[in-house]
Write a protein that binds this DNA or RNA. Sequence first.
DNA 1: TTGAAAGCGTTACCAC
DNA 2: GTGGTAACGCTTTCAA
Lengths: 341, 341
Amino acid sequence: MAATPMKKLNSPSSKAVAAELGVSVATISRVLTRPDLVNKQTRDRVLAGIGRLGYRPNLIARDLRRGETRTVLVVVPILSVFFLEILRGTEQAAEELGFAVLMGNAKGDSRRTLTYFDQVASRRADGIILLTGALPPEAAASQKLPPLVVAAESLKDGGHPTVGVDHAGGAEEAVRHLISLGHRRIAHIAGPDHVLSSRARTNGYRKGLRAGRIAFDESLVQRGNFTVDSGEKMMHVLMQQRQTPTAVFCANDEMAIGAIRSLKAVGLRVPDDLSIVGFDDQEFAQIYDPPLSTVHIPRFDIGYQAMMMLHDVLSAQRVFRSTVLPTRLVTRATSAAPRKR
Amino acid sequence: MAATPMKKLNSPSSKAVAAELGVSVATISRVLTRPDLVNKQTRDRVLAGIGRLGYRPNLIARDLRRGETRTVLVVVPILSVFFLEILRGTEQAAEELGFAVLMGNAKGDSRRTLTYFDQVASRRADGIILLTGALPPEAAASQKLPPLVVAAESLKDGGHPTVGVDHAGGAEEAVRHLISLGHRRIAHIAGPDHVLSSRARTNGYRKGLRAGRIAFDESLVQRGNFTVDSGEKMMHVLMQQRQTPTAVFCANDEMAIGAIRSLKAVGLRVPDDLSIVGFDDQEFAQIYDPPLSTVHIPRFDIGYQAMMMLHDVLSAQRVFRSTVLPTRLVTRATSAAPRKR
DNA sequence: TTGAAAGCGTTACCAC
DNA sequence: GTGGTAACGCTTTCAA
């Protein structure tokens, strides 16, 4: 046990270093920011002094002077795995651009998002990446929005730069996959109707059926709420129908797992008796038993692109580039040809 | 599609507001920070003006003046689910204390941790919560450490304030649980030897055996590396022994799942044929089929306590309080009495 | 190539 | 109760 490691760290100011070395503070600053402007001799002397004295420029003072923080705020609706990989992407891009990333958690409360808008109004960050899907209603009206990029939801929010995901396309691909395996009675456990991505996935489901010339059958779609439990329940409902499905496309991975659980409970096996496909490709999808066929969302890219786009917004005056990223079907062990009768 | 929502937001300075209202900047500042010091009439007038003009104090300037940022930096070794709940706890405490939380990702590179130390040397944050388990070797030597709390690993790093977890206690409880069910041949799939928490869990395992008067049998412990695959492999090894175990205590949940997978592959059932207990209580543990018996780590509390402790460190000069938080066994569906012979 | 000095937008001390 | 003003530590003209 050391004596007192918690030394109050009094890193010196540029003034102190300047005095010590007999140069001006301007020179110190230049050595750090525009070294080419200063004579090699003095430069080396200053550099040495900085090292010896352990000088660190006060970034707060620099930010104040420069009027920018080179920091962005990423606001997530809730702290969940889903956003982790997005965050990684944002971080990566931020690092490349020399930005720092601050994370804000709205905790499902749109008013908390407003608090974060305030952070940039207060100059703690230069801009915001919104992963909350929608602008808080209170803000939508306001004229004074911070530099903003909306990501992960392909909402049409009146022309903000957006990084979206092709939910419909992914859903369609999943259904086509099932069809190509030979399925005809393909059910759908949908997500909440008010979630835009959820709606898009249902649209994709219908489009997939149409492509396979399969009539849409209302009794084959049930609506869950993205939880394992709701998936389990809806699967149960589906199995009560007169004609049971041979495959189910679920709007997310949790519900897919619920569906499988429901099937296992009555002694049915996946994919032997029924095929299941999820959506999201969450981490547990490949760990699960059996490993889940699902639609992969390019989460890293979402984060990366959003950061890059925000950077554009920040440097240029106004940018309207928006992107929709493609999804990708990952076939694992829960989808197979239907049982022959 | 609106015309141009990306208005450059020119929030006015206190000087501008002061001029507009015919008061001094000092008054503006006081209204915001010590409202009791100013006459109710002027206060109301200023407040109204602030609202009308959309004034936001520049926090950067305030920080510079005050010499603190009321921001802490949480450094995670990697961006994984495990740290999510810890972060939630830190955030909660930070909010209660009026602090902001910045997250840094060391990406498994101890030198990157040093970069984050620099952030506080540069006054972007007041202190650091280290979730990386250990101080970077380069820093351990240095005298100039930032205000620091080490969390989630109960390392003895020369007297830094620490929020630890009782890994050994949790492991012991898991083993006692297995014993109480009637198991006698209890194997252990350990984690990497260089990870302190992993060693502590193995110690707990031995302690549990001792408590049950069961002789330690070296052939019953295999070392994995915390991945699903390693768990699978080690379980396979275990089943090659002359005398196979009836239960296995795994040092984390991933390896527990690997173990179960290995068993299923050879037609053995959990918990009918073998009991499995994991450690960590990750999210997927309760989703898995069958739901995993495991040792819960109070992640939220770790984060919460660490933030509170850092606050202490920041306000008092030097504090040496350290805490070890208890774990809790969660029995789900992978542990049961051994098969009768 | 270097230094002096004016700010950046606050806060807090000192007068009044 | 309120105003004037000197810092906080930096960057960036402008002169020399």
